[in-house]
């Protein structure tokens, strides 16, 4: 056990590793130790089994699904309140401020495209419909990625030159941002076709570039993000490289 691990508390490090909370030097140090220590490997495996048992314990509670569904307040038709003319006109300068603010914010930091001004949002799309919608709105050939069997597309968003899909997997939301060009990744000195932890203003995520596009995945914990990002990239590579060969 190296001195750093001793200092930080071995037990806490094991837990943070299994929870996907380690990153950077801490993660590298832990993984290096893990590769050589059978005792540590056994502890990690045991904690994973322990967590799986806790996760399974949720099944002991029977959920009265129908009664809960009935508790959801039903949406009413939107009520449009009459506004006086001066309020209506006040929206014009407000809108202009928002548009200029959004533009400046977007251009201030290319890495922050995730928070760039939103042009359009659509819910209830199939991945194929989302891809076609994004292509129509922005001209971006954003792939309609299905990130796994238990993952579903919740909504699509478009900015002036970016698109994002929000997926949900077992109650956790993941957002995949896509942008034409690789400058967002290059700014962080990340080579393409390999996923990297990226810290943007919008939070921690995983970034990579592929075929002249930048991808950035947020949401969930670091381990799940990495797993999903690697799976998406592998699928992209399999398709694009396979195509080039033919």
């Amino acid at each position: 056990m190296n001195p750093e691990m001793e200092m930080n508390g071995r037990d806490e490090l094991i837990q943070r590793y299994v929870d996907g909370d380690l990153s950077g030097a801490e993660l590298r140090a832990f993984e290096s130790e893990l590769a050589t220590s059978e005792e540590l490997q056994a502890e990690v495996a045991a904690l994973r089994t322990f967590k799986a048992a806790l996760f399974d314990s949720r099944l002991d509670i029977a959920v009265p699904r129908e009664r809960l569904e009935a508790l959801i307040p039903k949406s009413k038709a939107p009520v449009v309140s009459p506004r006086s003319p001066w309020i209506r006109w006040a929206f014009v300068p407000m809108l202009m401020v928002l548009m200029v603010g959004g533009y400046l914010r977007f251009n201030y930091d290319p890495m922050n495209f995730a928070k760039g001004s939103v042009v359009s949002v659509r819910a209830g799309l199939t991945p194929a419909a989302a891809a076609s919608w994004v292509a129509k709105e922005t001209g971006i050939a954003a792939p309609a990625l299905d990130c796994g069997t238990s993952c579903c597309l919740v909504k699509g968003e478009c900015g002036p030159d970016w698109a994002a899909y929000t997926y949900e997997s077992e109650g956790t939301e993941y957002r995949l941002y896509m942008k034409q060009g690789t400058e967002a990744i290059d700014n962080a000195n990340l080579p393409g076709e390999q996923v990297h932890d990226v810290v943007m203003k919008s939070g921690k995520g995983i970034g990579w570039s592929h075929c002249g596009m930048s991808f950035y995945l947020t949401g969930g914990n670091a381990a799940d993000r990495r797993r999903i990002a690697e799976m998406i990239l592998a699928k992209l590579c399999a398709v694009t490289h396979g195509h080039e060969k033919h």
Binding site: P127, A141, L153, V154, K155
Partner: peptide, 26 residues
């Protein structure tokens, strides 16, 4: 980019529709 266009077809599940997000509370 042609490969990515092909990926659009490959990754699109045949019949999966989900709504939600910020749109409707329900």
């Amino acid at each position: 980019m042609h490969g990515l266009n092909r990926a659009i077809e490959m990754f699109a599940p045949k019949s999966q529709t989900h709504s939600g997000g910020r749109g409707s509370f329900e």
